[in-house]
Simulated scan of single mutants.
Amino acid sequence: MSPWQPFWKRPRKPESESEWQKIKELREQRKRLKAAGVRLLDAGESSQPRCPNRISSAATRRSVPDGEGRPSALV
């Protein structure tokens, strides 16, 4: 016989076969969701980043040709 352990240290055992089945389904679901997350992460990293291009295009629209519309102190 094993030594006495408090209930919070004892291994949790499902009571019925249906509980075992539920645990198995949840384990498979967790595995599927984890794999899907990895696929999405890889897909996002492999695509070209849009942010730098968008920022540079916005900066290009704001830029003014030399000497036009600038105060004389900055020219």
Rank of each mutant, 00 (worst) to 15 (best):
R39C: 03
V75E: 12
G69I: 03
R12D: 06
G37Y: 03
P11H: 01
K24Y: 09
P71W: 15
V75K: 15
A59M: 10
M1K: 09
R27I: 04
S2R: 11
R27H: 11
K13S: 10
P65D: 02
S18D: 12
E17F: 08
W8S: 08
R30Q: 07
F7V: 11
E25G: 01
P65K: 05
S16M: 03
I55L: 07
E68W: 13
A43V: 01
L26I: 00
K9W: 12
W8F: 12
S16A: 06
P3S: 11
R61N: 06
S57W: 00
T60C: 01
P3H: 10
K34H: 11
P6R: 07
R12K: 14
L74W: 14
A59H: 06
T60I: 00
K34E: 14
P11Y: 00
G44C: 05
S16Y: 04
R62I: 09
E17M: 07
M1C: 10
E28S: 07
T60V: 00
P71K: 13
S18R: 11
N53T: 05
E45Y: 06
T60W: 04
V75G: 04
G44S: 09
D42C: 13
E45T: 04
E15S: 11
E45L: 13
Q48N: 09
S56G: 02
L26N: 10
L41Q: 08
I23A: 12
E28I: 02
Q5M: 10
